[in-house]
Structures are given as structure tokens and as C-alpha cells.
Amino acid sequence: MDVAALKKEIIEYSRTIGIDKIGFASADPFTELKERLYQQQQLGYQSGFEEPDIEKRTNPSLLLPHARSIIAIALAYPSKMKNAPRSTREERRGIFCRASWGQDYHRILRDCLEKLEQFILERVPNAKLKSMVDTGELVDRAVAERAGIGWSGKNCSIITPEFGSYVYLGEMITNIPFPPDTPIEDQCGTCNKCVEMCPTGALVQGGQLNAQRCIAFLTQTKGFIADEFREKIGNRLYGCDTCQLVCPKNKGKDFHLHPEMEPDPEIAKPKLKPLLHLSNREFKEKFGHLSGAWRGKKPIQRNAILALAHYKDETAIDDLLKLLKEDPRPVIRGTAAWALGKIGNKRVIDELKKAKQEEKDEEVIKEIEKGIHMLQEIK
């Protein structure tokens, strides 16, 4: 088998199925990464969404016996929304991060990888292949870096010379010994903008993230958001783009190469108040195709409440009172109570006091007390 010729064929074929960049790497263990991951674990910086077994995350042979190579792929997504609707005083809007615009990228990349697998198996029927996107065991960024897709930026994203960091990543482990590509040299230099501009200080230093403080992570949690982060979430419903938006390497990068990645402006930047009362079925019908919907409607609705508080939106008071009195979920009732205090309309203080008398959940009672306290502070 002429492996170099097969590699060339794969590269040419990848362009016909919508893969914007492809690279090849050895399947050797990621020894430096392994040390870093153990350190992150000890510091409590992990999100908890990762594969818990660090050995599996750093040793491809544990995932595919006799692994010899990894094929890394990248697809570029848009950074600008056409016809973006404006938020008005009467109808405030939230925002999904750019990585959650359009169709769920997991499906898009899996489709590309499946086609790539079929192409390889037609030529090498006994080839062993294992593909993954984001939720797999391997660290996508480490694979992409080794395969020459881009360098690992200080914002903990892969930055490509062509598309900046606006790329989705996926990979395929194989027992075929492809010639590896050369990694790209780090080009962040002395720039430290992402670290300096991170809203919560989640970027501890260039290349080190405390996921527990990261807004992108916090918007995906299901419980109460810690007080110190609530205002900093702003109008974000899912994810955070700050460390990408401030990156000079992303200046002018905006690619519209895949129609399925194009955002529907009314979904990527939806009105906040209608979000509060969606049923599970309505949420699934409207937002189910987004990658940002994977945790269900509760985190999105909680974040919408925080966004209304951020705007101090008095037109949402009746909606929030309805949630406080009727919603069966403590996180929603409690966050609504806090938001009412934050909005600062003193006419609701009696409603909060009444709700406190009727509330049974201790955490919700604390949130109601916070709301009352904020309103009593207003002169």
C-alpha cells in the first residue's frame, strides 16, 4: 500500500465533502498534555463534561488497538450574522454563541467523518478506524495542534492561519501509518488580549483555563449561578465569544462556506420574554437543532432571566412574577426572585414577601431574600 498516495487521495476527497482543513498526526501518547490534565484536575479547573479517564484522553492506543495515525479535520463557521435583529426596550434579546449557530456541528462533522471512513475502507478494507467529535475521549485541540491544523492559542482555542479560531474540530484514529504533517508554530507572541478581556478571569494565564469560572461552561450548568457571575453573563444564553472576538488573529475572519451553519437570526438572537414560557415540546421544535440545546431548556431559561435582570427590563416583571409563583423548578423560581430585585421596581416587594411566606425550598427562600434586600436598598 502506498500510504503517501492514499494520504493525497484523502486530502483531495476531503475538499469535495466540505472539509475546510485536514491534517495527519502520529498516534503516539500525548505525554505533555497528560501532565497538564492531571494538574488541571488537581486544581479543580475541569468542567466535568470531559471524559474522566485521563489515560484514555491521552493515549489513542487505548481507544483503538494498534493505532498508528490520527486524521484531524476542521470546518470553518461564520462569525457574523446577516440581518441580525436589534434588541429594543420593549423586546430585549439574548444571544447564542457563534459555535451554536445553525445546525448542531456534531452532526455536520460526524457526517463528514463517516464519508471519510467509507472512502478509506473502499481503498483499505481491513483498515481500523475510530472517529469522534468533541464528546469523544481525545482532546480535539491537542490532536489538531499536532496535525498542523493550527496552534493552540492563549484563549485555549485552535487558531488557524486561514479561518482564525472559528473552526469546529473532529478526528479519526486509524491503524494506517500515514506520514505526519508538521505542527504550526505558535503565533500569539506577546499578545495577551484574551486573558486580559475574559469577563470572569477564567483564563488564569495564556493556555490555562479554569472552566469553573468560564461563562461558556456556566451557561451550560443547571443549578443556581454564583452571585459573582450573574451580571457578567450579560445577555448570553449559551456560550461566550469574548476571547475569540478580542483576538487579533480573528480580525476580518468570517466564512460562510456551509449553508447548514448559517444562523436563523430569530433563533440565534431570540426574544427573551417568550423563552420563559416555552414547553419542552416548543423548545425542542424551535431550538432542538442547535448544539446549544443539548442541556435542555432549563439552563437557557435561567440565563434568559439573568439577561432580563442585566437589562433591568421592567416590561418583564409580570413574566418573572408568574415564574416565581407558578414554576415547579426551584432554580427558575429563585433566579426570577433575584432578577426582580435586580430590576429594581419597588412595587414588587410585597409580592416577594408573600412568595417568601409560601415558598418551601430553602435555596429559593435565600434568593427571594436577596431580591427583597436589593429593593429595600433603593432610596
Rank of each mutant, 00 (worst) to 15 (best):
A4D: 07
Q39E: 14
P263L: 12
R107L: 13
K8G: 01
K115Y: 11
T315I: 09
F224G: 04
R281S: 06
E90T: 15
E137H: 13
T221S: 01
L209V: 05
M261I: 03
D186P: 02
R98G: 05
P85S: 08
F49I: 12
K325Y: 14
R230C: 11
A72E: 05
C188G: 06
T31K: 14
I70K: 05
A293T: 03
A316N: 08
K360Q: 12
R236Q: 09
A309G: 15
K354P: 04
L138G: 15
L321P: 03
I372F: 05
V204G: 03
K379V: 02
I215Q: 04
K298H: 08
L75F: 08
W101T: 12
G371H: 10
K128D: 11
P60K: 13
A142S: 14
S26D: 10
G292I: 02
K82S: 06
W151K: 00
Y166R: 09
T160F: 01
I159F: 02
E90H: 10
L257Y: 10
P274W: 12
E285S: 08
G148Q: 08
Q212S: 12
D111Q: 15
P177M: 00
K249W: 14
Q40K: 13
S69M: 03
C247N: 04
C243H: 01
L352I: 07
G239N: 06
G201R: 14
N280K: 00
E228A: 14
S69C: 10
P52Y: 14
N280D: 11
C191H: 07
C247H: 08
R93F: 11
R110I: 08
T58V: 09
E369Y: 00
N155H: 13
L340Q: 03
S165T: 02
Y311H: 13
H373C: 06
I332K: 01
H106F: 05
E137N: 13
K21N: 04
V204M: 09
A304S: 14
L75E: 12
T315C: 04
A307K: 03
D241H: 05
A67E: 09
P78C: 12
R36F: 13
R146E: 12
N250K: 09
Y45H: 15
I149K: 07
I22H: 01
S61T: 15
V133G: 05
L6E: 00
C247M: 10
T190I: 09
L275T: 01
K269Q: 13
F119W: 13
L308D: 02
V133Q: 07
P52G: 08
Y45K: 02
P183S: 01
S152M: 07
I349A: 10
L33I: 02
I368S: 05
L321H: 11
D140A: 13
E363W: 07
P183C: 01
E114R: 12
E137C: 15
S100G: 10
D53K: 09
F217M: 04
Q301M: 14
E358H: 13
I54L: 06
N235R: 10
I349E: 13
F119L: 10
D2H: 01
N345R: 15
G136K: 07
R213V: 01
D264Y: 03
G252S: 01
